[in-house]
Design a protein around this nucleic acid. Structure first.
Ligand SMILES: [Mn+2]
Ligand SMILES: [Mn+2]
Ligand SMILES: [Mn+2]
Ligand SMILES: [Mn+2]
Lengths: 220, 220
DNA sequence: TTTTATTTTTAGGTAAATCTAAAAATTATT
DNA sequence: AATAATTTTTAGATTTACCTAAAAATAAAA
């Protein structure tokens, strides 16, 4: 059984491992809003428990057990987010912090029944896939909106930034999950992207375009 | 802001204060499954924070702030229990431990929306009253079944014991909340009580009868 | 290949929540 | 009222998760 803190470390390492093979001490410290020295302490403990492989000065990787544990926490986090949005009418920018707490509730029964209650959802309110009870989930094939060329179209199926200001901004622009979009222009001057929606046209900065994930349905 | 542990102490003191004015160190220790020495430490901290009044060797009482905090935790605990039973199909004997964790999730928004989602329930699955968001709730007038005389009747509206074995036992006997009952006999030999239900007759021990709460609707 | 910069670890310490063993205060019994 | 029993508190440690400051290792630059 892991502590609340250990679980947060495992989840952080899991997410960082999606970008780099070996996860570095400083990266964990930044993500966890703590100091590298504290990370080193925790890393040793997790290694002793067989949840990560650790070579001094070389960063860490999750073991099979560690990875499974992390995925289980991610599963809980995302299911709770669905609950908050679908059942309690939270907005997609309001759910993260609460889910950050709820994900640590320890009851297999609870999460399985919640999953059923929610209708076994496949994705959370941000488009992130929800692992099933065996930890399996489809690796989603997303393209960053920024990578689309003029004329390309697709559907918004995810975001790679979960901050409230960002999500509120998208909401205001009407760029929510499931929306069909087409890139109508890319401005030479600042690289900002002109998006055609079914009913209107909006302009978004490169920074915003980087964090919108598209499931492409055909190039032009 | 209180820690998880502080919250559990406050809740324990609150419940013990329903029976005695001054709550004693040993009583808290027993309830919290910890040692009196640990309780003394925590008591000092809670007193420093202004959540309890404490005179050495004289036990403690909750301050207004402490009481409000405790009631808020009780509110959360009971709402989560309703959620588990009404929405996730848990049995009334399965919810306590999970609610014990869920009650510590810190989000006012969450609990108010949950309350609404559940239809502002007035009682939890064990018949205990749920405080509203201002901490107010009707003081329920229960009579212990053991106190009824032969011929008295009433409705089962609560239990004063939440252990799984006890609740499963009641379930098996058909003695669940809302059931109409009448005391048809009290055995001389062991004081066990004969209960008439709408469709059958059951015999329960004094020990069981002590923990069933009845809202009386007329004596004979 | 030195030197410099960055990253990571170690050393030593703090605060929260617990413990055991022993001392002190209160309560009950003779 | 004196003694015994019970309750409560103190003293001194331990564990977990942090911290700062300094040392060590690795990576980058000159
Ligand atoms: Mn978390
Ligand atoms: Mn999410
Ligand atoms: Mn609790
Ligand atoms: Mn209850």
């Amino acid at each position: 059984m892991q502590s609340y803190t250990e679980e947060n470390y495992l989840k952080t390492i899991y997410h960082l491992a999606e970008k780099t093979i070996n996860v570095q001490t400083n990266a964990i410290a930044e993500q966890m809003q703590t100091k590298p020295a504290s990370v080193t302490d925790m890393i040793k403990k997790l290694a002793d428990k067989g949840l990560i492989d650790y070579i001094k000065y070389q960063g860490v990787t999750l073991t099979e057990t560690g990875k499974n544990t992390a995925i289980d926490i991610v599963r809980k986090h995302r299911l709770w987010e669905v609950f908050l949005v679908d059942k309690l009418n939270f907005k997609w920018d309001e759910v993260h912090d609460v889910a950050e707490e709820l994900e640590h509730i320890k009851s297999i029964e609870l999460i399985e029944r919640l999953d059923e209650f929610l209708g076994f959802p496949k994705a959370d309110p941000h488009g992130d896939p929800i692992p099933d009870k065996n930890g399996r989930f489809a690796k989603t094939q997303f393209i960053k909106l920024i990578e689309l060329k003029v004329g390309d179209s697709g559907t918004i199926t995810g975001v790679s930034q979960h901050s409230s200001p960002f999500l509120k901004h998208l909401e205001k622009l009407g760029l929510t999950l499931g929306k069909q979009i087409q890139v109508s222009d890319v401005t030479d001057f600042d690289g900002s992207v002109e998006i055609r929606l079914s009913d209107k046209q909006v302009n978004i900065s490169r920074e915003v375009a980087k964090h919108i994930l598209i499931s492409s349905n055909g190039k032009n």
